[in-house]
Amino acid sequence: MTQHNKINYIEIPAKNIEATKAFFSEVFDWSFVDYGPDYCSFAAQGVDGGFFKSELVVSTKNGSPLIVLYSNSLEETQAKIEKSGGKTIKPIFSFPGGRRFHFSDPSGNEFAVWSE
C-alpha cells in the first residue's frame, strides 16, 4: 500500500543487471520484472525498488545510505552471499539490539544484514 510521506521506492545502481538479478534471486529469493536491458524492478521486499545500469556504486564510505536486510540466521545468509559471488566487507559484529555484517554484491554495492 502506498502511504503519504513514506519511503515508497528505492533505486540502486548495478554494473551488470543480469548478475545482480541472479545474485539477489539466489541469496534472498527475490524476483524481478525487466523494463528493457538497463532496468529491473523488485517488489514485496520490505520496500519496492529497482536496479538501473550504472558504473556507480553505493558505499557508506561515499556517504551513501546503507540498505540493511534482515535474516533469521546471519551465518547461513553470509555463506549464501559468499557462495553466490558477494563479498563480506565487514565481518559479523555486535551492536545494541543484535548482530550484523556488511557485504558487497557483484556490482560492488554495500549492503548489511542484521539479526537479533
Rank of each mutant, 00 (worst) to 15 (best):
R99E: 13
G46L: 10
V58H: 12
N72K: 03
A79P: 07
F52G: 07
F101V: 07
E18F: 06
D34G: 10
L69D: 04
F23N: 06
E55F: 09
G49T: 02
E11D: 15
S25D: 08
G98P: 02
V27K: 01
I10A: 10
K90R: 13
F93I: 01
D29K: 02
L69P: 08
K80A: 09
S31R: 11
A79M: 13
S73G: 07
S31F: 06
V47D: 11
L66A: 08
F111V: 04
S59K: 11
F111P: 06
S107A: 10
L69Y: 12
L66D: 04
Q45S: 11
K53W: 11
K87Q: 04
L66G: 03
F32W: 04
F51G: 04
C40Q: 09
P106G: 04
R100N: 10
Q45M: 15
P65V: 15
N72A: 05
R100Q: 12
S104D: 11
Q78T: 00
E82G: 02
G63H: 12
A79L: 09
P106S: 06
G49N: 09
I7R: 10
P91K: 12
E75A: 04
N62C: 08
F32Q: 05
F93G: 12
S41C: 15
K80L: 10
H102L: 06
S41R: 15
F111I: 05
E55A: 14
S54H: 09
I81L: 04
A43Y: 14
L66W: 01
R100K: 14
S59N: 11
E76S: 12
S54A: 12
V33C: 03
S73T: 07
S41A: 15
H102A: 05
V33D: 10
K21A: 09
G97H: 01
G63I: 03
